[in-house]
Amino acid sequence: MPTITLIEFNGREHQIEAETGKSLMQNAMDNMVPGIDADCGGACACGTCHCFISDDWHEAAGSTDAMEESMLGMRPDRDDSSRLSCQIDVSEAMNGMVVRLPEFQM
């Protein structure tokens, strides 16, 4: 069970014991972390599970595919560390990972 820290936009931290094999989005929802809406339920089709992966963890979190890219492209607050949390499958390699949540989802 990797430990992942999610930080809300207002600075509040949530440390969760994440379940591997589930997405980061699902883990955040299961642990009632606010700041992710996940309107499409993980289909990479709404963009409302946006998060920022801290620098050292990009490799562990994997890369984006074309569909995730096109959904992320619609986000005004997108940056180099942007990911859709429903497209990240939690693995042991993510133990200690830090994830920031955006000011808003849309």
């Binding site: 499409c40 339920g41 089709a45 709404c46 409302t48 959904m71 619609m74």
Partner: peptide, 20 residues
């Protein structure tokens, strides 16, 4: 429990821009 999980705004790259 999950009221936002509906399809009125569509999904994908054309998902309603004005939903908020």
């Amino acid at each position: 429990a999950n009221p936002r999980h509906h399809i009125s705004f569509g999904f994908g790259v054309h998902r309603c821009m004005g939903n908020r």
